[in-house]
């Protein structure tokens, strides 16, 4: 291969960028995590971690649920899309990306006004008489009609479900895109070969298309799961503070009343480690495939 005359020179801007904005902050995080306010070495920040187990568990489980839902919705969309004409695919992909051009906060506020007790959905349900119907049925089924409390709205905002909905809504495109781009690149002759060897379309999907699309699934899962775990604004706006997530906990240590950057750094570090472990386990399953695009 011909040697590049410039050597590593073209990579220098990126290396400098990485050094300043990735490596240095990482070192700072590690430094803060292992020191106390006086600047002395301590493991105290980590010994407090036990009291936050619930937040860790909640963050990871809600993110896992959101990722699973994204996969269940996103894979079929990506698969069906890949069979359409290139023109249709381009337009559809643009429509899928379109919401991402709107400010994240604005989108989340919009969801708040949709999910609120007096919001769009509840008003709609009220107008079509859904609550009247439910109350009528409830009243008739209740053993003691006197004690039956009629409902006026569904509790949608300030629930874990709303947080998961927010995650799914915001990160779904990141699931669809990598899966779609992997599926469209699958050689059509490979599908014909499967048919030729006796596979019907279901078997072809199970034995050829799905295994070959796994790298895309891995990328998609990574790209949905990682931002979901560290999100904080979603849980505050849609979860109403009832569902504190890791992102909120970390934010509180740096910006909030519980100012303690040392603890915040320790939590960040642990979160990073757990995410990395999750991802490497995931990637291990996809061993032998083309390595997934890690972000």
């Amino acid at each position: 291969m011909k040697k590049n005359k410039l050597g590593v020179l073209p990579a220098v801007p990126y290396i400098v960028w990485m050094a300043i904005f990735v490596v240095v902050p990482l070192i700072l995080v590690v430094f803060y995590a292992f020191t106390n306010e006086a600047g002395g070495f301590t493991l105290a920040n980590f010994s407090q971690m036990g009291s936050y187990t619930k937040v860790f568990a909640r963050s990871f489980s809600l993110s896992a649920v959101a990722t699973a839902i994204c996969l269940l919705i996103g894979y079929p969309i990506a698969y069906v899309l890949s069979k359409e004409t290139p023109m249709f695919q381009r337009v559809a992909m643009m429509l899928i990306m379109l919401p991402m051009w709107i400010n994240f906060l604005l989108r989340t506020y919009a969801w708040m006004s949709i999910l609120e007790n007096t919001g769009l959905l509840n008003t709609l349900f009220d107008k079509i008489g859904l609550f009247d119907l439910i109350n009528w049925i409830g009243l008739h089924l209740a053993s003691d009609p006197g004690k039956y409390v009629p409902i006026e709205h569904f509790n949608m905002i300030n629930t874990q479900g709303a947080v998961v909905l927010g995650m799914v809504y915001n990160y779904l495109p990141f699931m669809i895109m990598p899966i779609h781009s992997v599926i469209v690149k699958i050689d059509r002759s490979m599908l014909e070969a499967a048919r030729d060897l006796g596979a019907d379309s279901k078997t072809t999907f199970r034995k050829v298309i799905f295994p070959l699309s796994l790298p895309g699934v891995l990328s998609g899962v990574t790209m949905v799961f990682v931002p979901s775990v560290s999100t904080f604004i979603l849980s505050r706006l849609l979860g109403g503070g009832t569902t504190m997530l890791l992102g909120d906990l970390i934010e509180m240590q740096f910006m909030g009343g519980a100012y303690n950057p040392h603890l915040g750094s320790a939590i960040s570090l642990i979160m990073m480690l757990v995410v990395m472990v999750c991802m490497s386990i995931m990637n291990h399953f996809g061993d032998g495939e083309d390595t997934a695009v890690m972000l």
């Binding site: 050689d187 002759s189 490979m190 014909e192 070969a193 499967a194 050829v208 295994p211 070959l212 032998g288 495939e289």
Partner: peptide, 10 residues
């Protein structure tokens, strides 16, 4: 036997 072989590379 396909022109580009079409072997399953997974």
């Amino acid at each position: 036997v396909f022109q580009n072989y079409a072997l399953f590379n997974h």
